[in-house]
């Protein structure tokens, strides 16, 4: 490597008009890939037995990489494929790899429906589902259904998560709160979600309120359970250290307990969001006049299997998208707090 570099520098000196070329090791870095490549084109006239193409690529790559290093002081970040990280942790590989199975499923679906192996009444073709989507969209229903369902999920999720955080904090932080509330909340948690539906409809009617409340119940329990447990299990030694340095009450909470549970709180939110979509369908299946759950039950009653497929696919895509949003938050939080 040393002799190579020296040789390259020599040829640069003689073969290039560029006066800025310095001497020694730093020269290729300062000049950049272009100059090295040019120098290498004149290189093979010398005593280098290796094929010029390979040499050029190697040199250019190392030159291109080196100046970027100082720009990343941490050295741990960086997601492009230019470094030596294993294939499985590169971003493009993850995206392509994650899309492989859905694409394969789509292809298999297409093949099965065009060969007629399964009757269309059992398995509509992808085209039929697409046309059903276009049809609903033209009538202005698709956007409406998606919008109303998403709205219900997010409002219900917001309320459920908020109350879950509060209840989790009370039960996780105070011994008295634990004694008073956790048996009751545990019993309420044990009630299956659908059992609430008749009661909520009787109390709140079949409007938005009953649905949002049902979704809130669904989002509440993962957050409550995880927040209470993780607050209870904050490292006692850190707590003692915090107290020994004069922290107590709200400042102890803000300085030690809250940061310690941030990653698990966000994991809880992620779980709660998935649960919210689950409860959305439960709410809409039973009593509603719009939304994706309504689309499901209505299509089931009228035998529109293409729309059933459409609704299921939409639920999958929407659930995954909202999960990815919280996933981004989670990644940030783990970097910041863990």
């Amino acid at each position: 490597m040393t002799t190579d570099a020296a040789k390259t520098t020599d040829t640069e000196r003689s073969g290039l008009p560029d006066g800025s070329v310095g001497s020694g090791f730093a020269a290729p870095v300062a000049v950049g890939g272009r100059a090295v490549a040019a120098a290498d084109a004149t290189g093979p006239a010398g005593a280098d037995p290796r094929p010029p193409g390979r040499e050029e690529r190697g040199a250019a790559a190392s030159v291109a990489r080196r100046p970027r290093r100082p720009a990343r002081p941490g050295g741990s970040a960086g997601s492009d494929g230019g470094d030596r990280r294993p294939l499985s942790s590169r971003r493009w590989f993850r995206i392509v790899g994650g899309a492989l199975i859905p694409l394969a499923l789509l292809a298999a679906w297409q093949v099965v429906s065009t060969t007629g192996a399964v009757p269309v009444s059992q398995l509509p073709s992808p085209e039929m589902v697409w046309l059903a989507a276009v049809d609903l969209a033209e009538r202005g229903l698709l956007g409406l259904y998606i919008a109303i369902s998403t709205q219900r999920v997010f409002i219900g999720f917001a309320f459920g998560a908020l109350f879950g955080l509060l209840a989790g904090a009370v039960v996780g932080l105070s011994r008295l709160g634990d004694v008073l509330f956790s048996p009751t909340l545990g019993a309420v948690r044990a009630v299956p979600s659908l059992a609430w539906v008749p009661l909520l409809i009787l109390w709140f009617g079949i409007g938005e309120d009953s649905k949002v409340i049902l979704i809130s119940i669904g989002a509440f329990f993962p957050v409550y359970t995880i927040v209470a447990a993780s607050l209870r299990h904050v490292d006692r030694r850190l707590l003692e250290a915090g107290r020994a340095f004069g922290l107590r009450g709200a400042t102890l909470f803000a300085t030690v307990q809250l940061p310690a549970v941030v990653p698990s709180v966000i994991a809880a939110l992620r779980l709660a969001l998935a649960q919210a979509w689950l409860f959305l369908v439960a709410a809409e299946l039973i009593a509603s006049s719009m939304g994706l759950g309504f689309l499901l039950s209505d299509s089931g009653n009228t035998g529109r299997i293409d729309r059933i497929f459409l609704a299921i696919i939409l639920l999958a895509v929407l659930g995954k998208l909202s999960d990815a949003l919280v996933g981004l938050l989670e990644r940030w939080a783990v970097r910041r707090w863990a």
Binding site: R243, A244, L247, P259, A260
Partner: peptide, 27 residues
């Protein structure tokens, strides 16, 4: 938790999400 005392524990017991500087500032 007497304010006149300061304790150095057997383990460092630093808050992992804070920089060294902010951990020292805790004292």
């Amino acid at each position: 938790y007497d304010v006149r005392c300061a304790v150095g524990f057997q383990e460092p017991r630093l808050l992992p999400w804070r920089s060294i500087e902010r951990n020292v500032a805790l004292g």
